[in-house]
Amino acid sequence: MGVLQHIQHQISALNDLIKINNDRIAGYQKAVENTDETGLNLLFNEYIDQSKNFVSELREYIHVLGGDPAEGTTLSGKFYHAWMDVKATFINKDRHSILSDCERGEDIAKKAYRTALDDKELIWEDEKVVSILNNHMESLRIAHDTIKSLRDTANV
């Protein structure tokens, strides 16, 4: 793989992570719409802000690489959120189901970051981007564990 192809591959991988974070933002916005619990809404808004910050860091690094940052969400994210909309019209969203949906979203985000970090064709030579991705991964792990813990203690 040539240098230009390598850089394009990095830009593509980082753009995928931007889209995953945009999915995460949309998912938590939907969760905020589905609950009146102040504590959950505060947490969900914190995670929305967290993903916005992640997107900002990723966009900045894409610019360093000479690329154009992505907009929007992933196609699968659009289908997932459309399904959440349909599902919400048929069933009453309780705390447990909202948190279950959020946990699934966190699983998807963690997997996307793991895939980018483990991609053998992506030789992340710049320690700054490796540090950014690892910091995002750790924050996503903590968010996942928090959501999972809340879900596990929710009255079903």
Rank of each mutant, 00 (worst) to 15 (best):
A70D: 03
L58T: 02
T73F: 01
A116D: 06
G67C: 09
L117Q: 07
V64I: 12
I48R: 01
Q50R: 08
K93P: 14
K110R: 15
T89K: 15
I98Y: 02
A109C: 04
S100F: 01
A82Y: 15
L75H: 11
G77F: 06
E121S: 14
T89W: 06
K93Q: 14
S76N: 11
R95Q: 15
N53I: 01
A70Q: 03
E71K: 12
E106S: 08
E57P: 01
A109N: 05
A82T: 10
D118F: 05
I48Q: 01
K110D: 02
Y61N: 07
Y47N: 05
R95D: 15
N53G: 13
D49M: 08
Y47G: 02
A112H: 03
D101Y: 12
E103T: 12
F54M: 04
D94Y: 05
L58A: 06
H63V: 13
G66I: 02
E106Q: 10
A70P: 04
E57L: 11
K52P: 07
E60H: 06
W83I: 05
I108K: 14
F54H: 15
D118L: 08
N53M: 06
E60Q: 11
A88G: 00
Y61H: 11
A70T: 02
K120R: 13
K120D: 07
G66N: 05
N53Y: 06
R59D: 14
E71G: 13
E71P: 06
D49R: 10
I123Q: 14
D68G: 08
R104D: 15
Y61K: 12
E71M: 09
H63S: 14
C102V: 06
L65C: 05
D94F: 04
T89C: 00
